[in-house]
Design a protein around this nucleic acid. Structure first.
Lengths: 153, 153
DNA sequence: TTCACTGCAAACGCTTTGCATATGG
DNA sequence: CCATATGCAAAGCGTTTGCAGTGAA
């Protein structure tokens, strides 16, 4: 990721911490940095392990705390793909998308489809409901994929 | 629910148990019965409590076991609405639908929109993916609803 | 200086597992 | 009969909480 974008994200986080009178600890910036270096989906434990190997090894409590704040300011998104543990992904410079989940190899593939917006608009009109976000997951099996049926995500 | 439909569901379960050489225990039929009496979404604990008050009080282990079988034969569906515990609903005589989740009062509202089928077909064509099922959740707040912002689901 | 944050470990809540007992086929 | 299911309790596992010590403001 380009330094320029990285700084822009740091600025957003910085502004949010200021606005909410949250403290600007090195741990929080280190976790944000690590998350934005990371490609794809991650869970708390893997991010905790990642952090342990860096210059700012942090506790699980701090990872959970920081992830909570990053969710609040929408720099990350939370997903529950049917497992007992939550998965996350960065959401800035990353357009809204949905997910195909392969129930063989547990691979998660992203896709975009503009029609979901039409459904959202129709529901808001007919159901007296203000929609903030959505999650559309398709579950099935990937075809013609070399590594399918081997667990690797 | 009409006796006729109830029998039809029992027959499906019965046939599935036979096919898989699973045993036909009274506990399993009692749990199926309780689930099909229940309206709306439920979790394991509430179903366990329900069962305790009936003629077949069963253990949690048996509830989990039976729910697993009912998922296999698609007599129920499993949902993760962002909480740490799974929720379930009966799925026979209950057309495929999606969910609006109010993040104030945690109410879950069902809706149907045929356009989701179009998205599914398009994805299957373009992504080399066989789709078995989907989950579309819209998160937001219900408007003009008397009891919203009070937790009651 | 002060109070929110961190780290650690214990507690929590849902789910799974192990084992002795019971029972369907 | 005996392999599978049940009941109970313990263990697992992701997440939350409590608390003493630390450091941002």
């Amino acid at each position: 990721m380009k330094t320029e974008k990285k700084n822009q994200i740091k600025d957003i986080f910085d502004a949010y911490l200021s606005k909410k009178n949250y403290r600007k600890t090195p741990e929080r910036y280190a976790i944000l940095d690590e998350i934005y270096k990371f490609k794809g989906h991650f869970d708390v434990e893997s991010m905790y392990i990642n952090m342990r190997n860096k210059k700012y090894p942090v506790s699980r409590a701090t990872v959970y705390n920081t992830i909570e704040i990053l969710l609040e300011c929408q720099l990350i998104r939370k997903h529950q793909f049917g497992k007992n543990h939550a998965q996350y992904e960065k959401s800035f410079f990353n357009r809204q998308h949905d997910h195909l989940i392969c129930t063989n190899c547990e691979k998660v593939i992203e896709f975009c489809d503009p029609r979901i917006q039409g459904i959202k608009d129709a529901i808001e009109d007919t159901m007296k409901f203000k929609i903030n976000r959505h999650a559309l997951n398709f579950y099935g099996q990937c075809l013609d994929e070399e590594n399918c049926s081997k667990k690797n995500y």
